[in-house]
Design a protein around this nucleic acid. Structure first.
Lengths: 320, 320
DNA sequence: CCGACAGTTGAGATTATCTCATGCATACAC
DNA sequence: GTGTATGCATGAGATAATCTCAACTGTCGG
């Protein structure tokens, strides 16, 4: 049989009450009610066999025994708090929370992150995907990749750095060409099923099929038909399955184009007037992980070889 | 809404496991099962978002995060343990446990202890009253006042110091004299009701009424009659209420004699061959409190004024 | 004089902690 | 090579600790 050590929660209750000389303020600190602390301390006094506080009606004062016990507890709990906080801080500097859209995450960022992790093995990247912009103050986000105007208005709270202009390009599965025949001009797409990616334009005015055909001076194409998606990755997957021709962000289509899953039936990129940007809070010096992420993503953009993509995609359009 | 601090019990589980590098040994120290610690530590890892141990099949090793967290916790919990132990030790040196009989406690020691507490304000005296001798090894007793032979055999384990020889004296309430008439000789007590205190003699041969009358060369007194008590204080209280004449320890009757509640109808003290002794364990240097108690009780015995008691008690025997 | 404040207390609700039994994968002894 | 022992993990359920809530008490200040 062993003599029970006093419960740690009771010792913590005593330490906080002794530091504040107030059960009410100690309770606030520990997120409990004053009644809970009163019970804890009373139980501790019974266990130890000494009075730790002298009760006045609206105040408490340490007894000699309480004054004797308190300093060691204060030091002890201080060390424990510091040890946990230090670990939290060290751990936090190794977490990078990136906010971006689900489409970009799925179709471009996720397939590349292994190269970031190779370079920053100690950084734990957390992707926060959502259709809305993250709030840097409340969402615990370090840095964001946002789809914005190519020349966005300055934001007093944000640093904004352009990564890549966005062009809209028509993409489809090679199997669609085999089914509907080669595409020699924009008008030939009139006989193809269309896919609409509505995630591009719901909140901001962005070009879609209508502008694309107009840019090619082609009219009379029935644009009401075809599949509609509200997520770019789902639209791209449908296109890859041969569901139709999709007007897509060139960046997001890049990997499917490189693998040949998608081709460019007509090389008519439409400048969207929009771009992907890196965004982070002004005034907050980016952490080492955030700074590394910034350099890494700019490099990933820089090494994309569009000319090779265009050559391979065009040759597939006419191949039989 | 606040971020919960890790539970202290989980931190303690981790600290002990880290110190032992064994859940089994840490569980033994904390008096729980290894399963409990496993759950605690797993929960802590989830809360903190880091792995603290690397599990091998039959062993655990600290991870980098675990090595980072451990030292601060070890220091912290060390301070807490030391603070509690230091209070326990200080508290123990201010507690004095005195073992004695209930009769002596009630009729002699308790009425005087306030003078000891005045002199040793920081000492908390605990009287351990029982009819049997305390065991110094198991009962947590520091010092004892025992009723023993006047010249006890040495005990290799105990220090024994005589306080006062015991004499047996007849005592009764003055109202008994009023009721049954003055007592001129021992024979006159034959017509008085008798009180027998059986606590004096159940385990050791001690004189009683039979020896007392024989010492006065009086025979033929019916000693079967009268009240019997197995506690000296109850017998003295009955005598004080006028229930009869009691053959009592002079020391225990002292206060009632001094206040006049009791008188000595016939001044015939019978040497009992017994004495009160202070007893404490040999080899154990008495604490400051025990040493103080020893000096105090010897002084209390020394200042008892028997001659004044005898004069007052005798004058009351003949007063009408 | 009355309302606010801080601590206390008991009863009951809630949550944390623990035990127990089973499983897994070695390590060790024969 | 095989069987047993060992240490850690895990889930389910039991137990104990902790907490909330409401009512009370006695000051303090307006």
């Amino acid at each position: 049989m062993h003599t029970p050590a006093p419960p740690l929660s009771a010792l913590r209750a005593f330490e906080a009450a002794a530091r504040h000389l107030s059960l009410t303020r100690a309770a606030e600190e520990l997120h409990v009610t004053p009644g809970a602390l009163s019970h804890q301390i009373r139980g501790l006094e019974e266990l130890l066999g000494v009075k730790l506080f002298e009760r006045k009606v609206r105040a408490i004062a340490l007894t000699a025994a309480g004054r004797q016990l308190y300093p060691g507890l204060q030091t002890g709990f201080g060390h424990i708090r510091d040890a946990v906080a230090s670990l939290d801080a060290a751990h936090a500097s190794n977490i990078l929370v990136v906010s971006t859209s689900p489409g970009l995450t799925s179709k471009w960022l996720a397939p590349r992150l292994y190269r970031f992790s190779d370079e920053f093995a100690d950084v734990d990247v957390r992707i926060s995907s959502s259709f809305t912009n993250a709030n840097f103050e409340t969402d615990g986000v370090d840095i964001a990749v946002r789809h914005m105007r190519a020349d966005p208005a300055p934001d007093p709270a944000l640093e904004i750095e352009k990564l890549a202009d966005i062009a809209l390009i028509a993409v489809c599965s090679p199997r669609l060409i085999e089914k509907y025949g080669a595409v020699k001009n924009v008008g030939d797409l009139a006989r193809f099923p269309l896919i609409h990616d509505e995630s591009i334009s719901p909140r901001v005015q962005a070009p879609n099929w209508s502008e694309w055909f107009a840019a090619a001076a082609v009219s009379g194409v029935d644009l009401r038909r075809g599949l509609h998606f509200n997520s770019a990755d789902h639209a791209l997957d449908a296109a890859g399955e041969g569901a139709g021709v999709l007007l897509a962000h060139d960046l997001m289509a890049y990997d499917d184009l490189r693998t040949g899953r998608l081709i460019i039936p007509i090389d008519l990129p439409l400048r969207a007037g929009r771009a992907f940007h890196l965004v982070w809070p002004k005034g907050r010096r980016p952490s080492r992980a955030a700074e590394g992420f910034r350099r890494w993503i700019k490099n990933e953009i820089a090494v994309m070889d569009w000319s090779r993509i265009k050559r391979a995609a065009a040759s597939k359009n006419s191949a039989r």
